[in-house]
Amino acid sequence: MSRPTGDRSPRDLVGGAPRERYALRFDGRELTAESGQSIAAVLWSAGILAWRTTRDGGAPRGAFCGIGSCYDCLVTVNGRPNQRACLVPARAGDTVTTQEGTGRADLAV
C-alpha cells in the first residue's frame, strides 16, 4: 500500500506559480481558477468530478479521456452548451453550469 503523501502536489513537481488566479462560477458556487487551466482542471481541483447528466439515464458524467476525444465532459459555458470542459480554457468571470441531457432544453417542443 502506498504511504499517505499529503505533502506533495503537482505544483511542487513543476514549481513556479500561475500568472493569475481568478474567480469563476460553477452552478452558483465560486471557484478559483489558475490561468492556463481548462474548465475541467478547475473543477477537478475543487474536487468536482461530474458536470453533466446523460440524455437517457440522467447519470452524472465528467472528464474521462482528458484529451477531447470522448465528449463525456460536455458542459455549458456562459450559456453555450456542449463545450468540452477538458479543452476549453477557463477565463475570469466564466459562468459554468451543469449540462442536463443535450443542453438544449430551450429548443424542446
Binding site: 513556479g16 506559480a17 490561468s35
Partner: peptide, 10 residues
C-alpha cells in the same frame, strides 16, 4: 502546462 500556469520545471 499552459504558459499561464507558470511551471518552471515542466
Amino acid at each position: 502546462p499552459a504558459p499561464g500556469l507558470g511551471a518552471v520545471r515542466p
